[in-house]
Amino acid sequence: MNGIHDLGGMHGLGPINPPASEPVFREPWEGRAFAMFAGTFVFCGYTVDEFRHEIEKMDPAHYLEAPYYAHWLEAFKACLIKYGHITSDELDARIKLIASGGQ
C-alpha cells in the first residue's frame, strides 16, 4: 500500500541528529515490547509480512510521531485481536486499570 511507511525520497522530515550513544532500549517498556515479538510470534498465527502490514495500516500521524516500538504495539494489538487471543474490550479495561494505578 502507498502508506506513510513508504518513506524513500520524502522531504521535510527534519535532521537525523544521531546521538553519540544510546542504550539498546531507552525505557524498560521498549525492551518488553521488543521481546513480545518473539513471545507472540510463536503462538499467535501472524506472519512477519502480516505484522509489517499491520504497522503500515497505522494512523499516519501516529506512525510519524510515535517511538519505534509503539509501531510494534499497534501490530500486536491488531494481530492478537484478529486471531482471537484477546478482545479489544478486555485490553481497554486493562489499560484503564493500569492507567488508574490499579495494577
Binding site: 525520497g9 502480516e50 502490514h53
Partner: peptide, 30 residues
C-alpha cells in the same frame, strides 16, 4: 495490500546485479 516494492522505484529502469535465490513472496505471505 502489502508490498515490499518501494514507490520511488516503480516505473524505473535497472539492471539485475545478483540473484539471491528463491524466497517466500511477501505479498502473498502477508
Amino acid at each position: 495490500t502489502h508490498t515490499r516494492l518501494p514507490a520511488y522505484l516503480r516505473g524505473k529502469r535497472g539492471v539485475i546485479e545478483r540473484d539471491h535465490g528463491v524466497f517466500a513472496y511477501p505479498e502473498h505471505h502477508a
